[in-house]
């Protein structure tokens, strides 16, 4: 199995966003939302793997999770993508990933910026894609998020993906249908996806996608046992 074959069934290609990894004027910000425990990390890891397979360096920031658990997500998704087949290029691909974990209570925008500067300025690791899993949208305002985006832009990031937890009993939504707690910051995101269980099925609703080849309102199907986008 070649790297290209692994990319085919991956979400960046499904959404037509591969070109975004090549960079634009501004870093693309994407958001994956779902209720707790529905598989946001699985989707984020698929985006990260896409970026890595396309030769980009990924910094995965896990807030409230350990390094080992995060690494297991990658191992599991890769094993599903490759059907357990041993791919010789995988160790090389994994060099494109770094995991940074923070406790919820100790994470701050300033701390992340300081850590990223450590990496970039010492030429240790220069990420092109950033995954931020577990960002607390409920307690951070739009200004802080905007500041984070500008900082990432200045550091040469091309793509940033966030995850956010929505709550069943919070009915607030934005005009584009983005649920709380992200309904007031949705203008900062080019792409917003929502994982929705419907009966036995798991759907990925595209609430917003400024440069996708798919229209907003389109729904992709996920395999509920693997959380991979269904082929075809």
């Amino acid at each position: 199995m070649e790297n290209n074959e692994l990319i085919v069934n991956n979400p960046l290609r499904a959404l037509g966003l591969e070109s975004k990894v090549d960079g634009g004027i501004q870093a693309m910000m994407g958001l994956v939302m779902a209720r707790a425990g529905l598989g946001k990390t699985a989707i984020l890891v698929q985006f990260a793997l896409d970026c890595m397979l396309l030769g980009n360096k990924v910094l995965h920031v896990a807030i409230g999770e350990g390094v080992d658990k995060t690494r297991t997500w990658y191992d599991d998704i890769l094993s599903l993508l490759t059907d357990g087949e041993k791919i010789s290029s995988i160790p090389e691909i994994m060099k494109n990933r770094m995991i940074m974990t923070f406790k919820e209570s100790s994470f701050s925008k300033a701390l992340l910026e300081e850590r990223l500067d450590d990496l970039v300025k010492q030429n240790i690791y220069k990420p092109e894609c950033l995954i931020i899993d577990g960002y607390d949208f409920a307690n951070n305002d739009k200004e802080s998020l905007e500041g984070l985006r500008n900082f990432m832009n200045d550091r040469g990031l091309k793509m940033i993906w966030f995850s956010a937890v929505s709550h069943r009993d919070d009915k607030r939504v934005s005009l584009d249908g983005v649920p709380a707690p992200c309904h007031e910051v949705d203008s900062l995101f080019e792409t917003v996806l929502l994982i929705k269980p419907v009966g036995d099925l798991m759907k990925l609703d595209i609430l917003k996608c400024d440069s996708c080849k798919l229209d907003p309102g389109t729904t992709l199907m996920l395999d509920p046992s693997t959380m991979l986008i269904k082929k075809g």
């Binding site: 390094v67 060099k95 770094m98 995991i99 100790s106 850590r115 450590d118 240790i124 690791y125």
Partner: peptide, 29 residues
């Protein structure tokens, strides 16, 4: 010291797999 530790690993052909930060204490793997 996390920055300097990461630098020292980088100088030694090391590949940083992850970092963990808990308050004033951190670990680099």
């Amino acid at each position: 010291f996390q920055g300097s530790v990461m630098g020292s690993i980088n100088q030694r052909r090391g590949m940083i797999i992850g970092t963990t930060e808990e308050g004033s204490y951190s670990a680099v793997e």
